[in-house]
C-alpha cells in the first residue's frame, strides 16, 4: 500500500501514514472544510491495512493543537479501529502529545485513553 503524506494547512493537520514501517501520525490543527474529504481515503486505506495485520507493532502519534467536533468523531473512529486491531493480537502504541499548558487537549487525551483496554496509550506533555 502506498504511503500517504499530506502537508499541514491552516485548517488541516499534517497526516503521515507510513504503511511500511507501521508508523502513523496526525499533527497540527484540524477543522477542515470537509472532514470526510480530508480523512476519507486515508482512513479507508488504514482500515484495510490494519485488517490484514497479525502480530504487528504499530505506532500512532497524535499531536493536535485544536480539532472540531467532526474531527473528534474521526478520532474516535480511529481509536476504535486501533483498539480492535490490538484486540486481534497486534501491539498498538498510541502517543498523545499535547502542549503542557493546554488543559483542554490534556483532558481530551485522558478521555480518549480511558476507552482503551488492549491498545497501549501514553500521554506526553511538551513545552509549547
Amino acid at each position: 500500500m502506498d504511503n500517504i503524506k499530506i502537508a499541514a494547512t491552516e485548517r488541516s493537520p499534517e497526516l503521515d501514514f507510513n504503511f511500511e514501517t507501521n508508523t502513523f501520525s496526525l499533527k497540527g490543527e484540524s477543522y477542515p472544510e470537509d472532514v470526510t474529504d480530508f480523512f476519507g481515503n486515508a482512513l479507508k486505506s488504514l482500515e484495510s491495512h490494519l485488517e490484514g495485520l497479525d502480530g504487528a507493532t504499530i505506532k500512532f502519534t497524535f499531536e493536535l493543537i485544536y480539532f472540531n467536533s467532526s474531527s473528534a468523531k474521526i478520532l474516535m473512529s480511529l481509536f476504535d479501529m486501533l483498539e480492535e486491531t490490538a484486540e486481534e493480537g497486534n501491539t498498538i502504541n498510541i502517543e498523545w502529545i499535547y502542549e503542557a499548558d493546554d488543559d483542554n487537549m490534556e483532558e481530551l487525551g485522558e478521555e480518549f485513553g480511558e476507552d482503551l483496554e488492549s491498545a497501549n496509550f501514553k500521554m506526553k506533555a511538551i513545552e509549547g
Partner: peptide, 8 residues
C-alpha cells in the same frame, strides 16, 4: 461518543 462530543 455523544456525551464526549457535547462536552467538547
Amino acid at each position: 461518543m455523544t456525551k464526549r462530543l457535547v462536552k467538547m
